[in-house]
Simulated assay, not measured.
Amino acid sequence: MSADPADRPLLTVRGVHRRFGSGPTAVHALRDVSFDLAAGTMVALIGRSGSGKTTLLNVIGGLDRPDSGTVLVDGADVTALDEDGLSRLRREKVSYVFQTFGLIPVLSAAENVGAPLRLARLPAAERERRVELLLELVGLADHAQQRPGELSGGQQQRVAIARALAASPRLLIADEPTGQLDAETGLSVMALLRGVVESEGVTALVSTHDPTMLALADRVIQINDGRLDEREAS
C-alpha cells in the first residue's frame, strides 16, 4: 500500500550534488545533501556566505538543476520536470521571497500582490478578495494603493511576502528575506513569516544569517561547504 499523502514530507531532498566548473578549480556547492521537511513547519537554513544556501534553495525551487540527486515537492519530482513543468510548479506549489524585494515600481501594493492571480486568470472579484485578505494578513491593509517607492523597506518586504502567498503555495522559499532590513524590522518580518506558516498552513524554508531569528523556527538546518550539519538536520 502507498503511504497516505498526509503523512509524507512536504519536501524530500535525496543525495543532491551540484558542482560549478570542472577540474581542480571546480566548486562543489552541494555535496550529497539529503533531508525532509514536514508540512506546515518553518525551517531556518543557516551557513556562512558561500556555504551553498542559495544554491540549495535554487535547486529545491527548480531555478537550478542538480548534477545528481532528487527533489520532491508535495509529491512532484522537481528534478524530472521540463521547463513547462517547472513553470507550473512555481505557479502552483512553490513561491519565492528574495532579499531584493522585486516589486514592480509602477504598480500599487495591491496590484503587485494581485499580479500572480491575474496571470492565473482568477476572476476579478475573487482576486480582489484574496489581495485584501493578504494585505490585511501582512498588516498593510491601509497601504493598498501606495507604490513601492512610497513604502519603507520593511513594508516592501511585507508586500513581497503577500505576493508570494497569493497563489496559496505549498512551499515558501525565502532567501535572506531580512538581508536589507535593520534588525528590528527584520525580526518583525521573520515573526510575520512565523505567523504565515500558522495561518496559511504553508511550509517555509528561510535562509538567514541572523542567529537572533532562529528561535522563531521549528527547526534549524546548517550547511557548511555544501554539506549539511547532521546534528542540526536531525
Results as ranks from 00 to 15, higher is better:
Pro5Gln: 11
Pro5Met: 13
Leu10Gln: 13
Leu11Pro: 01
Leu11Tyr: 02
Leu11Ala: 04
Arg14Trp: 01
Gly15Met: 06
Gly15Ala: 14
Val16Phe: 03
Val16Arg: 03
Arg18Tyr: 00
Arg19Ile: 15
Phe20Met: 12
Pro24Arg: 13
Pro24Trp: 10
Thr25Gln: 14
Ala26Asp: 13
Val27Glu: 00
Ala29Cys: 12
Leu30Cys: 07
Val33Arg: 04
Val33Gln: 10
Asp36His: 12
Asp36Pro: 08
Asp36Gln: 14
Ala38Asn: 10
Ala38Gly: 14
Ala38Thr: 12
Ala39Trp: 00
Gly40Trp: 02
Gly40Asn: 10
Met42Thr: 03
Met42Pro: 02
Val43Phe: 04
Ala44Pro: 01
Ala44Ser: 08
Ala44Gly: 05
Gly47Phe: 01
Arg48Ala: 15
Gly50Ser: 09
Gly52His: 04
Lys53Gln: 07
Thr54Cys: 08
Thr54Val: 05
Thr55Val: 09
Thr55Glu: 12
Thr55Leu: 07
Leu57Thr: 06
Leu57Met: 14
Val59His: 09
Gly61Lys: 14
Gly62Gln: 07
Leu63Cys: 10
Asp64Phe: 00
Pro66Glu: 09
Leu72Met: 15
Val73Thr: 10
Val73Pro: 03
Asp74Thr: 08
Gly75Met: 12
Asp77His: 01
Asp77Tyr: 02
Val78Glu: 05
Val78Gly: 04
Val78Ile: 05
Thr79Pro: 06
Thr79Ala: 14
Ala80Asn: 04
Asp82Gly: 12
Asp82Met: 11
Asp82Ala: 12
Asp84Cys: 05
Gly85Asp: 05
Gly85Met: 06
Leu86Cys: 07
Leu86Trp: 06
Ser87Glu: 07
Arg88Gly: 05
Leu89His: 04
Arg90Pro: 02
Arg90Ala: 06
Arg91Thr: 03
Glu92Cys: 04
Glu92Val: 01
Glu92Ala: 10
Lys93Ser: 10
Lys93Tyr: 00
Lys93Leu: 13
Ser95Arg: 03
Tyr96Asp: 08
Tyr96Phe: 15
Tyr96Glu: 09
Val97Leu: 08
Val97Met: 08
Thr100Leu: 13
Thr100Val: 14
Thr100Pro: 00
Phe101Pro: 03
Phe101Ile: 09
Gly102His: 12
Gly102Ala: 13
Val106Ala: 15
Val106His: 00
Val106Asn: 12
Leu107Met: 13
Leu107Trp: 10
Leu107Phe: 14
Ser108Arg: 04
Ala109Pro: 01
Ala109Trp: 00
Ala110Val: 05
Glu111Ser: 11
Glu111Tyr: 08
Asn112Gly: 03
Val113His: 02
Val113Ser: 02
Ala115Lys: 03
Ala115Phe: 15
Ala115Tyr: 13
Pro116Gly: 09
Arg118Thr: 15
Arg121Glu: 14
